[in-house]
Amino acid sequence: MTSELLIPLHVKYIQSLDNHKDDLAYHLTTHLRINGIYWGLTSLCIMGHQDALPREEMIDFVMSCWDEKAGAFGPHPDHDAHLLSTLSAIQILATQKALDRIDVKRVTDFLLSLQTASGVFAGDRFGETDTRFTYCAVNALSLLGQLGKLEGDRKERAIEHIKQCRNFDGGFGSSVGAESHAGQIFVCVAALAILDRLEEVDVPTLAWWLSERQLPNGGLNGRPEKLEDVCYSFWVLSAMAILDKVTWIDAEKLTSFILSAQDTEGGGIADRPGDMVDVFHTHFGVAGLSLLGYPGLEDLDPVYCMPAKLIEEMGLRKQWTALERRKLP
């Protein structure tokens, strides 16, 4: 059990992720490669070590994921373009200040082409829809400075669909009729924040539901009567930060829970104490700690899930409140 964030160890862990080319597991996850790089890079930025991964090589890799037929990014060379990988690609390039490498017109066309009649976005040409994809499209358009293209009827339909996914408990689901889930709540609330339509959120009810995600061990779950998991530290806290309600849970207990899920030998953070670590939970654990004001970390923007300083420089900052950063002891 450790009471502090082992930054040097996590940096080393993230740097080592690409050294496993003789592991089957490394190759079984190629469909998540670009997302993995976004998680690794963003957590490094929050830990103050953006330069720990080589910039040029990273940008070249992202560009090698370009799917010429679709006009967007896949997660790995020769994989098909998808909204999930396209958002990660744009987030990486934005963080590396390399957005000029993108064919903005083609990507914008790709993003807009995926909006369906009901307003929700599809993930790719095969048509799976999910409120996650609406967030991906809105976030990506915003980072590219193209949010103006989602105007009038398009914008209203996107918002109307999110509203239809809202439940009596204040939460949101992945589709109309679906149960509230903290991950879907993050994407819906953050999309509404980017679209300047937070009045569609029933704040007292949703903040109540979110605060009830904290379990006696300090960790957060994603739905009632489910197990805690480090990644919900971000899904729940981001929505609470946007609603200015982070204080409605016990920050100290959650901080201890996240820290207890660290691998104190190999680095990285797991879903819960004693489990195998991965870059996804490492990122969302660090992101959660940043919103909790953990000392020594950089601010994370909960709307874009990117470094706050960068989002501010880009002129995209929305209203949100994290806990005040504590001083290093």
Partner: peptide, 21 residues
């Protein structure tokens, strides 16, 4: 990765695993 327990392996065990894989 969700719910997979962390097991500390020796260097030998890792090498054997890789060979098998």
């Amino acid at each position: 990765m969700h719910g997979v327990r962390r097991a500390r392996q020796t260097q030998e065990a890792i090498a054997a695993q890789k060979l098998k894989e």
